[in-house]
Design a protein around this nucleic acid. Structure first.
Lengths: 210, 210
DNA sequence: GTCTATAGAAGGATAGAC
DNA sequence: GTCTATCCTTCTATAGAC
């Protein structure tokens, strides 16, 4: 009986995962410099010893893991928001609308999960700059592939993906500071317009009306 | 002789101004949480007493003044970059190109002077959020007026101004993290495209060709 | 692997002389 | 207005028992 897992129950999340999750959550509210290690350990919860056991590099190494995790989660969101076969103009509009809904519904907190930390650390920590860059590039890759699939040429797809990224990130910034959806609404209009223009310019297979 | 200013020489900048200037400079490198009061006092230079004499509200009040000053400086830059009478498409392209030049020439530091501090403080300090918002709005106002002057309708001018803001801010973020001009180049293309489209749709006075 | 205690530095703010 | 000394908190990191 002693070695048997009677009543399996929920598997407790390992300490390492709890630390990363807690860091993601704390960064969401306080960013890198605004988040203390103690608050992460309290939120995990985990003791000091575990942190430096799993992350010998301390706060910086833990932050890199948190950035990686946040980046993957948001990449998955982008992936789901631009499903293969969907109308890219509609998907773009929906993405900006959904982002506005989430942001407004979280007291203007949940915009880009990485922008703040990236701006805080890009100059001072090469590992963290690389982690953020890898995350951003993964989002751009998803977008580029999806746009390519609907007929936008390879080079144009990448350019368009970068433009959509810039529009959403800038809109997150302004919307958070203004506590207003206007920026996301206007940026969404611009994004949809750019996508539509790229589609209109694509090498026609059946060609559009007019 | 004692009361006469013989050899006027350069007027020493008052302590209050030096504090603000030093804060602007330190925020440029370390942001709000990454900048200590002591480093500001060292850079000014100024003693503790002067800081709390001119800014009884401490770091927060000093930061508000620094945000205001940075905001005015960048508004002036936008103002100069979109001179009345100039082709707005050309001005837009030049602005993004110039921004890329400055950013690359400062080791990817001098992008938006407020984005990082704004993201750091918008949630936690209402005075600082307001200061950043006021600065952003002043930039948008300049752009809106300029676009209106070339015939873009009032509502469209504001929307377009917001779109240009989002594109440049998002591009600053990505370019700083990637240490690459691509984002500013692509965003500049998108911005020029949106401006051109708005001009083509404007209530014609002489009407374009075709 | 987990935990506590503490070191050592840096943070913002204040007191009080001048 | 200017200056220095100092308080108290918070920060990251480490030591060493278990």
């Amino acid at each position: 009986m002693s070695r048997v897992k009677s009543e399996p129950g929920p598997v407790p999340r390992p300490t390492r995962d709890r630390l990363i999750t807690a860091t993601v959550e704390q960064f969401r509210l306080g960013g890198y410099h605004g988040t203390g290690i103690k608050s992460i350990l309290t939120a995990a919860p985990a003791p000091y010893g575990s942190l430096y056991h799993f992350f010998p590099g301390g706060k910086e190494e833990l932050a890199a893991a948190a950035i990686h995790t946040s980046g993957q989660a948001y990449r998955d969101l982008v992936d789901l928001s631009f499903p293969p076969g969907a109308d890219p103009v509609e998907a773009t509009r929906s993405f900006f609308d959904g982002a506005a809904e989430v942001l407004a519904g979280t007291d203007w907190i949940d915009g880009c999960p990485l922008a703040r930390v990236a701006l805080e650390t890009a100059q001072d920590s090469e590992p963290l700059r690389q982690a953020a860059l890898e995350a951003f590039e993964s989002w751009l890759d998803v977008l580029t592939v999806r746009l390519d699939e609907v007929g936008v040429s390879a080079e144009s797809a990448r350019v368009l993906a970068v433009q959509l990224f810039c529009l959403i990130e800038g809109a997150f910034l302004l919307a958070r500071v203004a506590r207003d959806r206007e920026a996301l609404s206007d940026a969404g209009d611009g994004a949809a317009e750019l996508v539509a223009a790229a589609l209109a310019a694509r090498p026609k297979k059946i060609s559009s009306s007019i």
